[in-house]
Design a protein around this nucleic acid. Sequence first.
RNA 1: GGACGGGUGGCCUAGUCUGGAUAUGGCAGCAGCCUCCUAAGCUGCAGGUCGGGGGUUCGAAUCCCUCCCCGUUCGCCA
Length: 570
Amino acid sequence: MSVMSSFRDDVIAAVRDALSKMGADAEFTTEIPSNDADLAVPCFILAKGLKRPPAEIAEELAKTIEIKGSIASVQALNGYLNFTMDRVALMNGTISEILEKRERYGCLPAKNVKINLEHTSTNPTGPIHVGRARNPIIGDTLARCLSRCGYDVTTEYYVNDVGKQVVILTWGLDNIPPSETEKADREKKDHEMVSFYRLANKRMESDPKVADEISSMLRRFENGDKEITSGVRRTTEMMLGGLKETLSNIGVELDEYTWESKYIENGDARRTVEDLKRSRYSGEEDGAWYLDLEEFGVHGSNKKFTFTRNDGTTLYTTRDIAYHRDKLSRYDRVIGVLGEDQKLGSKQLMCALQILASERMPEPMFYSFVSLPEGKMSTRKGIAVYLDDLIDESVEYAYNEIKLRRTDLSEERMRAIARIVGIGAIRYNIVRIQPEKQFVFKWSEALNFDGNSGPFLQYSHARACSILRKAENFERIKDASDLTDEYELRLVKVLSKFESVTGSAGEGRKIHLIPAYGHEVASAFNQFYAAVPVLNSGKTRDARLTLVECTKIVLNNILDCLGMGAPEEM
RNA sequence: GGACGGGUGGCCUAGUCUGGAUAUGGCAGCAGCCUCCUAAGCUGCAGGUCGGGGGUUCGAAUCCCUCCCCGUUCGCCA
């Protein structure tokens, strides 16, 4: 148990004791106060039951409460009870826990629960642009958070290799001579292919002959025509290769890639259709089958959820049901990171699963799109900032920043650090904002390396490393009574909160809490650094160096949780 | 039009679920701090109708009602 949570238990027990001495047995809550106290109990909810003003209750409780265990003091203020924790207990407990657990500090015990986390799953029709970049970054960060919360997490990319978009792209690759396409902005498969996709779309719209050709390809594809199927497969694989490279560049690797076509080939989609047809919610109209979702609170024109075309073929959403039944049968929990445009589809999917008497439901997590100041991004229209370009810019910016302040590093070393910092800045900048918030991409914000930014955390980490490097050797302390400065206390308090932050970030799926906490740690450390000398501090040297090492460990863990590198110098 | 999300100083943002003490932090701005462990840092100043209006409550950024603005969506597309 963490130091903080055992303190909380002591406080709750003490307040309960005092209340019973006053002849009351009321419910109360605790909260982290905004002042210097460590824990507060608001007495307002006790007022009604005791029929006395909150301030008076707080005063009396403060007098009655026994100061013992980890409680150092209690004070009544404005109807609150403010508790402070025993300084040495907090310091010793936190420091020894960090040193003992090291890279596991902040992790929760294993839960033996298997989670499947689907994320990214972008259509393989073009490079990843920053409009979609939120998905892999949120997904990967959430996966890391959940792992730290003790879950057994498998990440998965659902490859949409079925449907019109990839067929159009395949037609483009087969029929448009490369000389007619625009030269790709970089030598990378996804970038080289996107021009074919745009041109194919254009020709399909303007030339009825092309449109016919594509629909006939689509029909043959859906009937399982070997030649078309393998062509589409080749297209998708080629594109996916480019996408994987980009993902890998921002530190995202997925465990599994599941191809949508699998559910047609293995008959799951067919079986799902048969099961749905048997339900009392299904109906037929002009040969196409649908579910009537009125009873599920879906009203208006979208209450009719069509799951087969009139020719009997399945739709994307139908295959999605089969896909989810499959995942739900293999995992305890199924989470999906989805764009906000998937909300209705996700609702329909859940209704269908309910109709199919699924025991468990997927847990969707939505994010709003990133747009540009001039409007929303579109691969087809070519209005987009590609993630590859953002990575290049950010890494280049980081390189220039390093070159500005370091003259002692080799070119190679500077390039390596620039990668870590540039990519860290991108990831941090995206997860720091609540996913459901609208996001307008601005270069000035993406390339902000100050204050509440990724490089700020990395810099603090590098600073801690630098001090430890210079110290060479020191005795790790067992007793923190040498740490008497207020900055030291504040830093330790912040470090002690890590476990509770990980818990709320993972369980509540609020990953933006991690960067906020990281900023708090880095900030407390920088203040400590500015106020207190470490290396030339006489008999407190060992104690302070131990604290620096603890901070380094925590920052390292936070950076890992965010999928960011932790440079030892920068 | 319906449904779902968002609206917090010039800009970005936390807090909203579970109502509580002077609304969190950053950017930009202004004024300071490198003879000392990395100034991507630290200190201070300035900046707020928590979209508007009602209501509930001892107490509302937080709950309820209503209106406004922005986004998404309402296909036998994916």
